[in-house]
Amino acid sequence: MSLHRKGRAALVLALVAVVAMAFRVSWNALRDIAGAVGADATAATLYPFVVDGLMALALVATLVLADDARRFALRVLGAYTIASLILNYVHGLVPELHGRTVDWSRLAEWDPANWALVLLATSLPVGSIYFGSDLVAKVLHHRPTPARELVDGQRADTSAPLPHTPLPDAVHEVPTASKPPVSALVNGRADAVQTPDPHTPHPVRTPDAESTDDALRQAQFEEAELERMRQDARRAYAESAQAGRPLSARALGEAFGMSESWGRKQILAVRDEEEQLRPRLRAVDTAAV
């Protein structure tokens, strides 16, 4: 195991230890609060898992989800964090809650504040059922995006230009619909260039050269897959437009696991192609006729 992986593993273990200790501290306060609002011994023991457990679930969901679903998970995490903080604060203000020496329905002397605190404490379990089920459903239906990411975090529609020898000019003159896959062109060109000469010794391929060739083939394969995805998305939008129900940019992007901006680019490409194919009228000079 490398030093970098050891550092990451140590960081994760330290985080788990801190979270476990923080949960133990919060568990004491939430258990007393649950007992003060009428929960029995078993329910009061399980109550902290309902509140802080959903916080842990929402935290995991934020690491898996993206876009709107991730923002929803962050809102759930923030709301339950604030609720747990309020209940822990009330427990600190009323230390008699630990000994169960106060009236079970009195968390504050002012009636409106007491009603609000009781409503908060009793509504958190119901909210955990609703929000927890929604988060699990979003995680189970989440599909990771297959597109590669640029350094600045934006999704790449096209790959970076390849180093070394470019493709011949004749390839660029072939229409897109009849153009063969880029990987086949590169492999065919590589076979033509690397045809061995019977009068020359075979070159010795080093591991670095083989890894470079593998990376080149992988890049060409990914580019071909992205191009195929773009063509499929444009075809899907054109068919929906012909049916009278054109897809929106957001719906088109989500259907292919991409962003809304990516879907908007494909829609604009379809419209540009339709504009080029549309016949143009020319003015006729009647005087010359």
Rank of each mutant, 00 (worst) to 15 (best):
Q266S: 06
S123D: 04
P146E: 02
D157R: 14
W110S: 13
N28D: 09
P125G: 03
K265R: 12
A170R: 12
L74C: 05
D169H: 06
G244S: 09
R245A: 15
E96M: 04
D134G: 03
A170Y: 09
D103P: 03
G153R: 06
T212G: 05
L167Q: 10
R282N: 07
A156I: 05
Q220V: 10
V50H: 12
W27P: 00
A215H: 03
W115I: 02
H4L: 15
R280N: 08
W27H: 15
V16F: 01
E173D: 09
A236R: 11
V270M: 04
S84I: 01
D152G: 05
V174G: 00
E222V: 05
V270K: 01
S128E: 13
D214E: 07
Q154R: 15
A147G: 02
A14M: 06
P161W: 09
P125T: 03
V118Y: 08
L13K: 13
P95E: 05
R271T: 10
L120T: 12
A269P: 03
L59H: 02
A233R: 01
L59S: 04
G53A: 10
E225N: 06
G92V: 01
L46V: 10
Y237R: 02
G92T: 02
L140D: 02
E225F: 03
L135V: 07
G35C: 00
H202K: 13
A209P: 03
P125A: 01
T212I: 10
N28T: 13
K265G: 02
W262E: 06
R155W: 11
A73S: 09
A17S: 08
A288M: 04
M258C: 08
V90E: 11
